[in-house]
Amino acid sequence: MGKMNVNLCGIELDNPVIPASGTFGFGYEFAELYDINCLGTFSFKGTTKESRFGNPTPRIAECSGGMINSVGLQNPGVEKVIDTELVKLSKCFSKKVMANVSGFSLDEYAYTSSKLDACDQVGWIEVNISCPNVHGGGMSFGTSPSAAAEVTKTVKAVTTKPVIIKLSPNVTDIAQIAKACEDAGADGISLINTLLGMRIDLKTKRPVIHNKMGGFSGPAILPVALRMVYQVYEAVKIPVVGMGGISSARDVIEMMLAGATAVEVGAANLVNPYACKQIIEDLPECMAEYGISGLSEIIGGAH
Protein backbone atom coordinates (compact mmCIF):
# COMPACT_ATOMS: atom_id res chain seq x y z
CA MET A 1 0.00 0.00 0.00
CA GLY A 2 1.24 3.47 -0.87
CA LYS A 3 2.28 5.87 1.84
CA MET A 4 -0.34 8.47 2.67
CA ASN A 5 1.49 10.41 5.37
CA VAL A 6 2.48 14.04 4.82
CA ASN A 7 4.22 16.62 6.97
CA LEU A 8 2.26 19.81 7.53
CA CYS A 9 4.41 22.59 9.00
CA GLY A 10 6.45 20.16 11.10
CA ILE A 11 3.59 17.94 12.27
CA GLU A 12 3.18 14.52 10.71
CA LEU A 13 -0.29 13.62 9.39
CA ASP A 14 -1.28 9.98 8.76
CA ASN A 15 -3.01 11.20 5.63
CA PRO A 16 -3.64 14.60 4.03
CA VAL A 17 -7.43 14.67 4.54
CA ILE A 18 -8.71 17.45 6.81
CA PRO A 19 -12.39 18.35 7.25
CA ALA A 20 -12.66 22.10 6.69
CA SER A 21 -13.74 24.61 9.30
CA GLY A 22 -17.47 25.16 9.53
CA THR A 23 -18.42 21.81 8.08
CA PHE A 24 -17.36 19.55 10.94
CA GLY A 25 -18.40 21.43 14.09
CA PHE A 26 -16.08 20.44 16.92
CA GLY A 27 -15.89 16.88 15.67
CA TYR A 28 -18.05 15.06 18.17
CA GLU A 29 -21.20 15.02 16.00
CA PHE A 30 -19.22 13.00 13.47
CA ALA A 31 -17.59 10.86 16.16
CA GLU A 32 -21.06 9.40 16.77
CA LEU A 33 -20.84 7.98 13.24
CA TYR A 34 -17.22 6.85 12.94
CA ASP A 35 -13.86 6.99 14.67
CA ILE A 36 -12.62 10.41 13.60
CA ASN A 37 -9.03 9.48 14.48
CA CYS A 38 -8.83 8.15 10.90
CA LEU A 39 -8.58 11.79 9.75
CA GLY A 40 -5.29 13.55 9.13
CA THR A 41 -6.67 16.20 11.47
CA PHE A 42 -9.63 18.57 11.20
CA SER A 43 -10.12 22.31 11.35
CA PHE A 44 -12.70 23.20 13.96
CA LYS A 45 -15.55 25.72 13.73
CA GLY A 46 -14.31 29.30 13.23
CA THR A 47 -13.76 30.82 16.65
CA THR A 48 -13.88 34.45 17.69
CA LYS A 49 -13.16 36.33 20.92
CA GLU A 50 -16.84 36.84 21.78
CA SER A 51 -19.77 34.49 21.32
CA ARG A 52 -21.58 35.08 18.01
CA PHE A 53 -25.03 34.03 16.80
CA GLY A 54 -24.15 34.84 13.22
CA ASN A 55 -26.49 35.98 10.48
CA PRO A 56 -30.29 35.78 10.31
CA THR A 57 -31.76 32.80 8.45
CA PRO A 58 -32.16 31.69 5.68
CA ARG A 59 -28.42 31.06 5.69
CA ILE A 60 -28.37 28.28 3.10
CA ALA A 61 -29.12 28.12 -0.61
CA GLU A 62 -28.58 25.28 -3.03
CA CYS A 63 -26.78 25.58 -6.37
CA SER A 64 -25.87 23.24 -9.21
CA GLY A 65 -22.85 21.41 -7.87
CA GLY A 66 -22.79 23.11 -4.53
CA MET A 67 -24.33 25.42 -2.00
CA ILE A 68 -24.19 28.93 -0.61
CA ASN A 69 -23.86 29.53 3.10
CA SER A 70 -24.14 32.70 5.10
CA VAL A 71 -23.71 31.40 8.62
CA GLY A 72 -21.61 34.35 9.75
CA LEU A 73 -19.18 32.70 12.17
CA GLN A 74 -21.66 31.40 14.73
CA ASN A 75 -19.60 30.12 17.67
CA PRO A 76 -19.73 30.22 21.45
CA GLY A 77 -16.60 32.39 21.86
CA VAL A 78 -13.05 31.23 22.55
CA GLU A 79 -13.42 30.68 26.31
CA LYS A 80 -16.39 28.35 25.86
CA VAL A 81 -14.71 26.65 22.92
CA ILE A 82 -11.77 25.80 25.18
CA ASP A 83 -13.77 24.95 28.31
CA THR A 84 -16.59 22.98 26.68
CA GLU A 85 -16.04 22.08 23.04
CA LEU A 86 -12.38 21.06 23.21
CA VAL A 87 -13.05 19.02 26.35
CA LYS A 88 -15.78 17.11 24.50
CA LEU A 89 -13.46 16.72 21.52
CA SER A 90 -10.64 15.31 23.68
CA LYS A 91 -12.86 12.32 24.43
CA CYS A 92 -13.13 11.30 20.78
CA PHE A 93 -10.02 12.69 19.05
CA SER A 94 -6.47 12.01 20.19
CA LYS A 95 -4.58 13.83 17.41
CA LYS A 96 -3.63 17.48 17.19
CA VAL A 97 -6.51 19.58 15.93
CA MET A 98 -6.35 22.67 13.73
CA ALA A 99 -7.79 25.73 15.47
CA ASN A 100 -9.60 28.12 13.14
CA VAL A 101 -9.52 31.73 14.30
CA SER A 102 -11.41 34.77 13.08
CA GLY A 103 -11.68 38.34 14.28
CA PHE A 104 -12.85 41.86 13.66
CA SER A 105 -9.67 43.62 14.73
CA LEU A 106 -6.00 42.76 15.14
CA ASP A 107 -6.53 42.70 18.92
CA GLU A 108 -9.26 40.11 18.59
CA TYR A 109 -7.10 37.88 16.38
CA ALA A 110 -4.31 38.18 18.95
CA TYR A 111 -6.60 37.49 21.92
CA THR A 112 -8.23 34.39 20.43
CA SER A 113 -4.97 33.00 19.04
CA SER A 114 -3.11 33.42 22.33
CA LYS A 115 -5.89 31.59 24.21
CA LEU A 116 -5.77 28.71 21.75
CA ASP A 117 -1.96 28.71 21.77
CA ALA A 118 -2.19 27.53 25.38
CA CYS A 119 -4.15 24.40 24.41
CA ASP A 120 -2.09 21.21 23.99
CA GLN A 121 -4.75 19.76 21.69
CA VAL A 122 -4.15 22.52 19.15
CA GLY A 123 -1.50 21.70 16.57
CA TRP A 124 -1.88 24.57 14.11
CA ILE A 125 -3.65 27.90 14.10
CA GLU A 126 -5.50 28.50 10.86
CA VAL A 127 -6.25 32.20 10.60
CA ASN A 128 -9.39 33.01 8.65
CA ILE A 129 -8.92 36.35 6.92
CA SER A 130 -11.43 35.43 4.27
CA CYS A 131 -14.92 35.00 5.70
CA PRO A 132 -17.28 36.53 3.12
CA ASN A 133 -20.21 36.56 5.55
CA VAL A 134 -19.35 39.18 8.12
CA HIS A 135 -19.12 42.91 7.69
CA GLY A 136 -16.20 45.00 8.84
CA GLY A 137 -13.95 42.03 9.47
CA GLY A 138 -13.02 38.65 8.12
CA MET A 139 -12.53 39.11 4.44
CA SER A 140 -11.48 42.75 4.65
CA PHE A 141 -8.17 41.54 6.13
CA GLY A 142 -7.75 39.09 3.30
CA THR A 143 -8.20 41.37 0.33
CA SER A 144 -5.07 43.48 0.65
CA PRO A 145 -1.49 42.20 0.97
CA SER A 146 -0.58 44.71 3.67
CA ALA A 147 -3.63 43.92 5.87
CA ALA A 148 -3.00 40.18 5.43
CA ALA A 149 0.60 40.70 6.49
CA GLU A 150 -0.50 42.67 9.57
CA VAL A 151 -2.78 39.87 10.76
CA THR A 152 -0.04 37.32 10.14
CA LYS A 153 2.49 39.28 12.21
CA THR A 154 -0.08 39.81 14.97
CA VAL A 155 -0.86 36.11 15.32
CA LYS A 156 2.76 35.00 14.93
CA ALA A 157 3.65 37.28 17.86
CA VAL A 158 1.34 35.38 20.26
CA THR A 159 1.93 31.76 19.33
CA THR A 160 4.73 29.27 18.79
CA LYS A 161 2.43 26.92 16.91
CA PRO A 162 2.47 26.87 13.11
CA VAL A 163 0.29 29.64 11.70
CA ILE A 164 -1.63 28.90 8.49
CA ILE A 165 -3.35 31.85 6.85
CA LYS A 166 -6.63 31.01 5.10
CA LEU A 167 -7.11 33.11 2.00
CA SER A 168 -10.10 34.41 0.12
CA PRO A 169 -10.53 33.73 -3.60
CA ASN A 170 -12.46 36.99 -3.92
CA VAL A 171 -9.33 38.96 -4.87
CA THR A 172 -7.50 40.00 -8.01
CA ASP A 173 -4.13 38.42 -7.26
CA ILE A 174 -4.17 35.71 -4.62
CA ALA A 175 -0.49 34.83 -5.12
CA GLN A 176 0.53 38.35 -4.11
CA ILE A 177 -1.45 38.05 -0.85
CA ALA A 178 0.03 34.62 -0.14
CA LYS A 179 3.53 36.03 -0.67
CA ALA A 180 2.80 38.91 1.71
CA CYS A 181 1.74 36.41 4.39
CA GLU A 182 4.86 34.31 3.84
CA ASP A 183 7.04 37.40 4.12
CA ALA A 184 5.24 38.31 7.36
CA GLY A 185 6.15 34.94 8.87
CA ALA A 186 3.26 32.61 8.00
CA ASP A 187 4.11 28.91 8.26
CA GLY A 188 1.50 27.85 5.72
CA ILE A 189 -1.27 29.07 3.45
CA SER A 190 -4.70 27.48 3.11
CA LEU A 191 -7.06 28.23 0.26
CA ILE A 192 -9.66 28.76 -1.00
CA ASN A 193 -12.38 30.03 1.27
CA THR A 194 -15.79 30.28 -0.40
CA LEU A 195 -16.55 32.34 -3.47
CA LEU A 196 -19.02 35.16 -2.94
CA GLY A 197 -22.27 34.13 -4.59
CA MET A 198 -26.02 34.64 -4.72
CA ARG A 199 -29.30 32.91 -5.57
CA ILE A 200 -32.65 34.56 -6.21
CA ASP A 201 -36.00 32.94 -5.42
CA LEU A 202 -38.24 33.15 -8.49
CA LYS A 203 -41.41 33.05 -6.38
CA THR A 204 -40.50 35.93 -4.07
CA LYS A 205 -38.13 37.57 -6.60
CA ARG A 206 -35.75 38.26 -3.71
CA PRO A 207 -32.36 36.79 -2.78
CA VAL A 208 -32.74 33.37 -1.09
CA ILE A 209 -30.12 34.20 1.57
CA HIS A 210 -31.23 36.74 4.17
CA ASN A 211 -27.90 38.60 3.85
CA LYS A 212 -28.39 38.51 0.06
CA MET A 213 -24.91 37.09 -0.61
CA GLY A 214 -23.03 34.16 0.82
CA GLY A 215 -20.09 31.84 0.26
CA PHE A 216 -20.36 29.38 -2.61
CA SER A 217 -18.73 25.98 -2.07
CA GLY A 218 -19.03 22.45 -3.41
CA PRO A 219 -17.70 20.45 -6.38
CA ALA A 220 -18.46 23.27 -8.83
CA ILE A 221 -15.62 25.40 -7.41
CA LEU A 222 -12.89 22.73 -7.67
CA PRO A 223 -11.37 24.11 -10.90
CA VAL A 224 -11.11 27.60 -9.40
CA ALA A 225 -9.50 26.19 -6.26
CA LEU A 226 -7.03 24.10 -8.26
CA ARG A 227 -6.01 27.11 -10.33
CA MET A 228 -5.43 29.26 -7.25
CA VAL A 229 -3.52 26.56 -5.35
CA TYR A 230 -1.37 26.12 -8.46
CA GLN A 231 -0.65 29.88 -8.55
CA VAL A 232 0.07 30.15 -4.83
CA TYR A 233 2.38 27.11 -4.90
CA GLU A 234 4.52 28.93 -7.45
CA ALA A 235 4.59 32.11 -5.37
CA VAL A 236 5.56 30.74 -1.94
CA LYS A 237 7.90 28.17 -0.37
CA ILE A 238 5.75 27.39 2.69
CA PRO A 239 3.23 24.50 2.59
CA VAL A 240 -0.14 25.05 0.96
CA VAL A 241 -3.35 23.43 2.17
CA GLY A 242 -5.73 23.13 -0.77
CA MET A 243 -9.48 23.16 -0.52
CA GLY A 244 -12.55 23.93 -2.59
CA GLY A 245 -14.95 21.32 -3.90
CA ILE A 246 -12.95 18.23 -2.96
CA SER A 247 -15.25 15.23 -2.73
CA SER A 248 -13.25 12.18 -3.83
CA ALA A 249 -9.83 10.56 -3.58
CA ARG A 250 -9.17 11.64 -7.18
CA ASP A 251 -9.82 15.25 -6.20
CA VAL A 252 -7.31 14.91 -3.35
CA ILE A 253 -4.62 13.71 -5.73
CA GLU A 254 -5.43 16.42 -8.25
CA MET A 255 -5.20 19.10 -5.54
CA MET A 256 -1.86 17.74 -4.33
CA LEU A 257 -0.50 17.72 -7.88
CA ALA A 258 -1.48 21.40 -8.07
CA GLY A 259 0.71 22.05 -5.03
CA ALA A 260 -1.19 21.15 -1.86
CA THR A 261 0.66 19.43 0.98
CA ALA A 262 -2.70 18.55 2.56
CA VAL A 263 -6.31 19.13 1.60
CA GLU A 264 -9.43 20.28 3.37
CA VAL A 265 -12.85 18.85 2.59
CA GLY A 266 -15.82 21.10 3.28
CA ALA A 267 -19.28 20.95 1.74
CA ALA A 268 -18.97 17.22 1.01
CA ASN A 269 -19.24 16.51 4.77
CA LEU A 270 -22.64 18.16 4.89
CA VAL A 271 -24.12 15.99 2.17
CA ASN A 272 -22.37 12.77 3.13
CA PRO A 273 -21.28 12.71 6.78
CA TYR A 274 -18.93 9.81 5.93
CA ALA A 275 -17.26 11.72 3.06
CA CYS A 276 -13.81 12.12 4.65
CA LYS A 277 -13.69 8.55 5.91
CA GLN A 278 -14.61 7.27 2.46
CA ILE A 279 -12.05 9.48 0.73
CA ILE A 280 -9.31 8.18 3.07
CA GLU A 281 -10.38 4.59 2.43
CA ASP A 282 -10.46 5.16 -1.32
CA LEU A 283 -7.02 6.81 -1.50
CA PRO A 284 -4.83 3.64 -1.58
CA GLU A 285 -6.66 2.20 -4.57
CA CYS A 286 -6.67 5.54 -6.37
CA MET A 287 -2.92 5.94 -5.70
CA ALA A 288 -2.27 2.44 -7.04
CA GLU A 289 -4.32 3.19 -10.15
CA TYR A 290 -2.07 6.16 -10.98
CA GLY A 291 1.20 4.56 -9.90
CA ILE A 292 1.66 6.76 -6.83
CA SER A 293 3.73 5.13 -4.08
CA GLY A 294 3.70 8.03 -1.65
CA LEU A 295 1.45 11.09 -1.50
CA SER A 296 4.19 13.38 -0.21
CA GLU A 297 6.08 12.75 -3.46
CA ILE A 298 3.34 14.16 -5.69
CA ILE A 299 2.99 17.59 -4.04
CA GLY A 300 3.24 20.18 -6.80
CA GLY A 301 3.84 17.42 -9.35
CA ALA A 302 1.89 19.28 -12.03
CA HIS A 303 4.40 22.14 -12.14
Binding site: G22, T23, G25, K45, G54, T57, R59, N69, V71
Partner: peptide, 27 residues
Amino acid sequence: EERMGCGFGACMGCSCKTVTGYKRICK
Protein backbone atom coordinates in the same frame (compact mmCIF):
# COMPACT_ATOMS: atom_id res chain seq x y z
CA GLU B 1 -39.01 24.54 9.66
CA GLU B 2 -35.83 26.16 8.33
CA ARG B 3 -33.59 25.88 5.28
CA MET B 4 -30.92 23.38 6.24
CA GLY B 5 -27.46 22.57 5.00
CA CYS B 6 -26.67 19.22 6.57
CA GLY B 7 -29.61 18.34 8.82
CA PHE B 8 -27.43 16.84 11.54
CA GLY B 9 -25.90 19.75 13.40
CA ALA B 10 -22.64 20.32 11.54
CA CYS B 11 -23.13 23.48 9.48
CA MET B 12 -25.08 25.87 11.74
CA GLY B 13 -27.24 26.76 8.74
CA CYS B 14 -30.57 26.51 10.58
CA SER B 15 -29.82 28.15 13.94
CA CYS B 16 -32.37 30.16 15.86
CA LYS B 17 -32.36 32.17 19.07
CA THR B 18 -34.35 30.85 22.00
CA VAL B 19 -34.86 31.86 25.62
CA THR B 20 -32.39 29.13 26.57
CA GLY B 21 -29.73 30.08 24.02
CA TYR B 22 -28.92 29.35 20.39
CA LYS B 23 -30.41 26.17 19.01
CA ARG B 24 -30.05 24.30 15.75
CA ILE B 25 -33.49 23.50 14.29
CA CYS B 26 -32.04 20.24 12.93
CA LYS B 27 -30.43 19.07 16.16
